[in-house]
């Protein structure tokens, strides 16, 4: 019983700040923790704030391009790595893993300096380039793990049954790794929508994303509009992650069915 209470307490603690933000987005009081009544004013205030809406659209635009490019690159990278000689494959994967654990601030600094020396104008393009750079390793790793489920004999069987190489890839490999690509897409989307550290280094004056806007507002103090906006953002993320879990749960049940059949 003690174990369950511990689990419950930690889970509650994990959600406490999010819950507080959501609750206070409906609080009539302009400041402080005192509950003075229910209101939706902050939502309409946020909706009327043109700059907030602009930065939301900017976030979505960047996340959209990031998601597509990362998925294409990450998937091609994983499929390509699987075909490489073992040494090259190992080096390639190591490179991806290292990119994954470089502290965000350093990647941001490096990218900022790199863009500056190339004289690139900061804006949507530098943002998409940077976001894609930290998303590709995630897609790469997820697809690489899933690719292990594609036994080489599946491809041989497809070829043996009359499929040309590309057809074998499209009809066998691609459908099997699709859930991983979908997970990678959702994760890229979520990470791009969430990033502050790298974005605030490489953005231009015209490419302020929502988290950046929230961050600069927070430094000046808490305002209830941020509560409202954050709540919206939290729900968008909930939906993305819910979708992700749905995709992965499908895969889990597929695995469970396989296990059962094996035991039978």
């Amino acid at each position: 019983m003690g174990k369950r209470i511990y689990i419950f307490m930690i889970m509650a603690l994990l959600y406490l700040p999010v819950a507080i933000v959501i609750i206070y987005s409906f609080n009539a009081s302009k400041s402080g923790a005192v509950w003075t009544g229910f209101t939706l004013d902050w939502y309409s205030a946020a909706a009327r704030d043109g700059r907030l809406i602009d930065s939301l659209l900017m976030s979505l635009e960047i996340a959209f391009f990031t998601c597509i490019i990362s998925c294409v690159l990450g998937t091609m990278g994983a499929v390509g790595a699987a075909r490489m000689r073992p040494r090259a494959k190992q080096a390639a994967s190591l490179f991806m893993y290292i990119s994954l654990i470089i502290p965000e601030i350093i990647l941001g600094v490096a990218l900022l300096m790199f863009f500056s020396v190339l004289n690139v104008r900061y804006g949507v393009m530098t943002m998409v380039l940077s976001h894609t750079t930290f998303c590709v390793p995630y897609v790469f790793i997820m697809v690489s793990i899933r690719l292990r489920a594609v036994d080489p004999s599946f491809i041989e069987a497809a070829r043996d049954l009359g499929a040309k190489p590309f057809k074998a890839f499209a009809s066998i490999t691609l459908p099997i790794i699709m859930p991983a690509i979908a997970s990678g897409a959702l994760i890229s989307m979520a990470m791009s929508l969430d990033d502050v550290v790298i974005s605030s280094l490489v953005s231009g004056p015209q490419s302020v994303t929502l988290p950046m806007r929230i961050y600069s507002m927070l430094r000046l103090g808490v305002t209830p509009e941020i509560n409202a906006l954050s709540t919206v953002l939290v729900f968008v993320m909930f939906m993305l992650v819910g979708l992700l879990q749905f995709v992965q749960a499908g895969r889990r049940s597929e695995r469970a069915a396989k296990k059962e059949a094996r035991n039978a």
Partner: peptide, 28 residues
Amino acid sequence: VLVFLMIAFWTSSLIRTYGWIIILQTNG
């Protein structure tokens, strides 16, 4: 538990930090 853990994991860290500000601030 794992699903809810993942959701918490992917909820904006900025917003979660913000939640703590509301909790910890003066008059919070």
